[in-house]
Structures are given as C-alpha cells and as structure tokens.
Write a protein that binds this DNA or RNA. Sequence first.
DNA 1: TCGTCTTACACTTTTGAAAGGA
DNA 2: ATCCTTTCAAAAGTGTAAGACG
Length: 854
Amino acid sequence: MLGVEMCPSLALGPQRRSDCCYRDLVLCGPSLADEAPAHVLAPRLSPDAETAGTPQNRVRMELENAALWKQFSTVGTEMIVTKKGRRMFPQLRVKLSGLNPSLRYILLLDIVPVDSSRYRFQDSSWQVFGGAEARLPDRVFIHPDSPATGEHWQNRTISFHRAKLTNNTLDAQGYIILHSLHRYQPRVHVIEARDVLMCGRAQHSFSFPETQFITVTAYQNSKITELKINSNPFAKGFREYGMNCKKQRDARLKRKITSSQEESLDIESCDPCDSTELLPQSVEIPSSALSMINTALPLTDSGFHTEVPSLPDQTISDQPLMLGQDFLSSEIPSSMESQQQTASENNVNNTLMDGSGQMMGLSGYSSAFPTPQLSSSLSQSSSIYSVVSSTQSSDLELPPSSTIPSPTYSSMPPSDYPGVNTSTTMPSSTTSPPGSSYPISPYLLPSSSYYALLPTDQSQDNLSLHTPTNPPFQSICPSSCQGSGLTIDPGRNQVDDGRLGSSNAMTPAIQNPTQTAFPFPPVQSSNDPDPSSPPCRSLSFPPVLQCNPIPTPSDPNSTPAAFPFPPAAQSTPNSMMTASNPNPTLSLSTSGPAQTPATGSFPVSQSSSIPTVPNPVYPTTGSFPFPSTNVSLQGLVQSVSNALHTSAAYSVPLFPAPKHTAPAPLPNPAHTSYPHLLQSLTLPSSSSIHSIPAIPNTIQIQSVFTQSFPNPSFPHIPAQTANPAQIPSQSFPPIHSSQLLSQFNPASTHPQCPSSSNAYPAVARSEIGSFSQLNSAAPYLPDVVLHPSLLPSLDSSLSSSAPPSLYNPFPSYSLRLCQDPRSSLHLPLRHIYTQPQHAHAQGSYFDLGARAVF
DNA sequence: TCGTCTTACACTTTTGAAAGGA
DNA sequence: ATCCTTTCAAAAGTGTAAGACG
C-alpha cells in the first residue's frame, strides 16, 4: 500500500527527468515568471521539458470563485473552526486544465500555516499577537473523486466544500486540524495516481493567495459575517429578511419572554398557538419586507454558484467593505467589480478549459488588480501562479514571459495590504512594491540570491523544520546529498547563503503581500506606488526550479538524504522564521552555522514570506491565475517523499500584515538557535539548501529584511525580529546526521510504524527547544515515510537539478507521500487510504502526521 | 475584566430513501 | 421489472447568543 504522509507542505519529490512525461509542465509560477527571464529558465528546464513536452501537459488550475474569495480577502477572510468540524466558506472551487485525459489523478487539499504567528483582532484589524502554537498533525483532504481521470477533473468544477476544519487536536474524524487565530493557506495538489503509487512524479501544487484565512472560533470582523451571511445559502436565515435575522430573533426572544411571563402569570391560559416559534415567522415579516427580499437579496438566493458574482455585486459594488475598501480601490478597482470579475473569470475558465495557453486565473485575477508589473516578463506569469509544481519539467512548458499575462497578482496585494507599509520602509531600490504582497521583494529576486533561495526554500519547505528532513533536499545537491545528506556541502553553503539572502528577501516580500491581502487598516498605508517593482522579483525564482536539481534515482546513498525529514514542517508556518519552524532547524543543521544565523535573523514574517516564495526549483505550471499566490514550490519535498509534495507556497498575503500588538510571546528561537543546530549537525549542504538559503548570511538577511522588509504591516515579523531576545536560547540539541538518517530510514519513518509516534519527531523536540516561539508547544513534526526506492531518485534529482530547494512560502509543509513497497498500485486511493477514523463519507482525509492512516 | 472557546438554538440547504408514475 | 421523477424526513451546515473557562 501506499503510505501517504502529509507533510504540511506537499512536497513533491523532484521528478526524474525521464519521468516527466506527463507532468511536465507545471509552471512554476511565480518563481519563474517573476524574475527569471524566460530564456533563462528555458535552458534549465529544457531537459525536463523535452520529456514532458507537450503543452497539454501544462497543468493549470483556476480558482473558480476567485471573485468571492477576493472579496473576503479584502476584508480579511475568517474561517470558523469548531470541534465538530466546520466547512470552509467560501469553498475552494477550482478548475483544472492541462491534465492528460487518460491518466488518473488524485487531488489533495491541505492547509498550511502562512507564518508562525498568532493573531488577534484589534482595532478592526488583525494583528500579530504572539507566536504560533505548536504545529498540529498534518492532514490532507483527498477529493472524493480521487483518483479520477484527467478528463473527469477537467470536465467539471472541482469543489472541496466537504473538507472540514476543526480545532480539536484530538479529532478522530480526520478533519483538517487547525489552530484558532492562526493564518493559513489552502493548497491544492494534483498528483498522478501512478505517481502516488510509484513514488510520485508529476505533482502540481496550487495555492491562491486570496484563499488565505485566519481561523476563528467566532467571527471577529462584522464585515466577514456580513459577507458570509450574504453569500452562504445556509446562512440565509440570518439575512435581513431571513427568518433568523436579528429582527426575528429579537421578536422571538420577546415572545419567549412575554410567553414565559404569561405562563408564569397564568399557565392555564397558555395556548399552544402562542408558541414563540409560530409568532415570529408569520407575524414578524412584513409583506413589504418579503417583497423586498427578492430585490434585495437576489444574489444570495442565487446560491453558491452565483455566489461569487452576486456577492461582489452586492457587497462590493453596492456596499463596499470598509476594511477592504482601500484594497479594493487600489487593487481591484474597476475590474474587480463583481460582475465583471465573474464574467471575466468565467471567460478565463473557459479559456483554460479550452486549453488555451494563457493562464486563466491570471488574466482574470490580474485584471481586477492593477498589476504591478514584474520586472521580468517571466515574473508575471510566475507571480500569477500560485502553484508550485513539483514537476521539474515544467520549465519548458512555461509560456514565454511575453505570453504570460502580466502578473496580476502583484498589483493586488501590495497596495492594498497593510504589509505594504512595511515594504515602504524597505529600501527604495529593493523594496518590494508596497502593496505587493505578491511581489517578491527585490531582495529575493536577485538572481544570485535567487538560486540560493530556491534551494533553501525547498529544503525548508520540504523538510520539516524539525526534522532533518532537510537532508533529502540536500540530496538535491549532488555532492552533499549523496551521502546521508548530512554531509555538508561547502559549495552549497555558499550558494545557500546567497539563496538565503534572497530567500530572506523573498520572505519579507511575501509577508508583505500577505499582509496586504488583508485590508485591515494597517494595510493601506503600505501601498507602494510601484506595484511593479519588487513584487515581481520575488516571483522570479524561476530558475529555481529549474528542474535542474533533479536527482538521479541512482543514488542510493543519496536517498536517505533525499528523504525529507519528517515533515517537519511544523506547524509553524514560517519555515524560515521559525525558529519556531522546525524546518529551519533542519536546514540549519545541515547547512551550517552560517545558515542558522540567517534563520535566526529572519523575522518571523520573513519565514512566512519565504514560503511564499514560489519554489523556483519547480516551476509548476503556472496556471495559477492567482497572482498573489506565489506558490513556493516545494519541489524539494518531492525528492523527499518522492511522491509529491508541492509546496505551494504562495505568497499570498491576503492578510494584511498584522500589526504587532504584542510581541510574540515566544521569541523566535529559531534564529538564534539555528546556528547551533546547524553547527551541531553536520548536514550536508543540501540541508543547507533548505535552511541555508534562508540562512545565508544572517547579517545579510537581517539587513535585508530589516531594511527592506521592515514591514510594519507584518506584525509578526517585527515581533520576531523584535523579539530576538525573546528567542529562547535555544540550545539546539545537536542533531546528528545519524539521527536524521534514522528518521529517513524507511522503516522508522514509515508512517504506519513510527509515524504516529513520529508525529512529533524526537528531533522536533530538540528543535522545539530551540524555537522559542514554538517551544511552548512542541512543534509538530510530521512523520516522514521514506521509501527506499524513492530516496535515491530524489537525491539525484535534487542534486542535479540545481537549486535544491525553494523557499516555500510555507516552510516545511510538504505533502509527503510515501509509498510502501507492498502497496498495490492499482487500488484506488479511496480504498487504499481508507482510514477507519478518517474515512469521511464525503471525502477522505489523510492524516499526514505520522499517524499514518494508510 | 477580558479574550477565547463551547454549546444550544433556529433557520436553511442538502441528502437520501421511499413512493408514485410512466 | 426497470427507470425516472417527486416527495418527505433526516442530516448537515449556518451565524448568533449565552455561558464557561482561563
């Protein structure tokens, strides 16, 4: 059977070049597009591309109800989490194109932390308030139709509405477990069924910045409540003239009171007819009101399908959201108009379906948002793409920069998002566009840094923070990786440094975007005039991807390294930042002290941002229309799990940078601690890849971030930075390569066995200790299931390809699929993965965490 | 006292089984 | 006997408010 581990991030292992046939094209979105010129990418990608080849292979995903999501994101999307599980609204509805009609694919939904901060709604805006709680077991929602043919997926709208969110850490239903008051990014992963069985090949991850949300147990922002009521059919009763509206409820309450009084006074006189229920409905609603309903609430009534359009129309056009106004005005402007958007979206979708080369999402999205143009032609496309494809091949596929629509995304976030402000603080030259949450900070972009970044990101993302998972990534680096992956690669380190620097830069930018996403008050200020400038850069990772690094399967040795650590990904969103992030630790350990420092230096936000950075390495298809999403590719993960992982890190910044109301309680231990880890661990450069990139020069990073990304908007970042002192001393227990290896060891790592226990890898503890923020709660370390066969391939791929890893926007969140040698290839996932506990009538949930469901 | 979370409530939509008809 | 449509009840999904908890 197949063991699927869910790493927070889906990390699809790098594909073998030879394997690229189908997957090829995952456009890397952002990364490529942003900065790297198409031509640049092409070469790197070419190998894969050749195999992958056909344009058909370009996998693209479009967020069907993007307009609705945008509306929510402008206000600051909130998602209710309950113990019993709550569905998401808006629901994730996407359209896929570019799949091979005859191949079977599995669609997964996972939700990863955007950063390592906890938020609080104060002063009508979301502000960072402390560090994130320990990461929870990674769970993935498998679309009920999985596995299904490409034709199946492409012929319909794919909805993940059955996925449920819970804050019950002991949830036995298999729902996706999230912490309240944390910011998350949903990601959709498209995996070839055979890949899963065969250790994953073509895997594509998509994330849409506008789908970021903050989890709550009760709505904090009245605007969101209003939007939900107006757009969610189940909440019709709460609409103005609904039977459960305030008037009705008040009336009922009065009746109850009066009835109770009457009863108390004269019980005998009571008449059943007087029941509170009866009165309200019939009496309460005036006929006039009823008549008005049609006109007033047409949209809402329309139902889900109409949702998007309707909402925008009503809410936005008619009643612009206070919070989001700025955002809307600046970014979404006219185009954003609900109707137009919807129309545009539809059109876009159609086009996508048609298979037009253009990216659907982008066009639609971009239109709404003023595009900050990416400096590089490529960037645009990339920016657009939130998706990170694991597949390496994607490169070739990518449409020329020219063809790629200007990055729509960039425009959005930046100006609107509070985060922008931070950007403003940034150095003018490098500064990412103010608003640009998307836009990657220039820093990131720098070509030099760029490569480094990629690796790092990936490594981080892929690797679970805690775990040594990084090693796998290391594998990416040929030399380093080969060994256990633990071996340090000097060369790598250097590269990493550069990467780190870039990555760092990236992160900040990303963060900003995220912040920008939230219209909250803070946001507006930040807007950069130039959308074009910085944001784009960040995206540029392209190169990364480069598929280069595709590891050759041959290396057995490498395999171990290749294994991503247990998905370390910790709960903490920011790989980078986190000190808290387990991932960082990993990377650190591997890379070397230098890296660690870097990590340490990064503000939390950075880390978050990092993830956002699309993985340059794996240019997935860039089909993402969503600009904001810079999905960071988690190609690295791939290597690790072989299977897929995607990292879809996107940069979405929907959330405005939260203001730091209070310093995170937990300092980022990561920063300080990392160094130790790294040192202690003699991880190969590869490891460095993860972290390293991030880590580069702490000093550099710090400077970069601080300067460029001072983001005020990102509260958490500042907080972290501010908190450095807070950062717990981390004494990182040195992680020995052997330990890491052990983790990699398939046997140990196998989900079924150790995994459960592994959910919180021992390593993690050490890491935890190191990460002050997370310390309180030990970061969750996903178990990594390693498959022997997979490891080698990963290593080789990684090493060869080049940039080992990208910074995933979401560090350490890679989806790890582990294949069990014994698994049968032919079984449908739904059967294969049936989890007694997790089995859900409506959908399948996998517990990525070590507890293997499979 | 405050912030957060849980629970119950009333309403709506969705779902699936049963009944009826062609 | 099979298939399709309609009906109905149960289940599930909503936000709200009150209360509990730390």
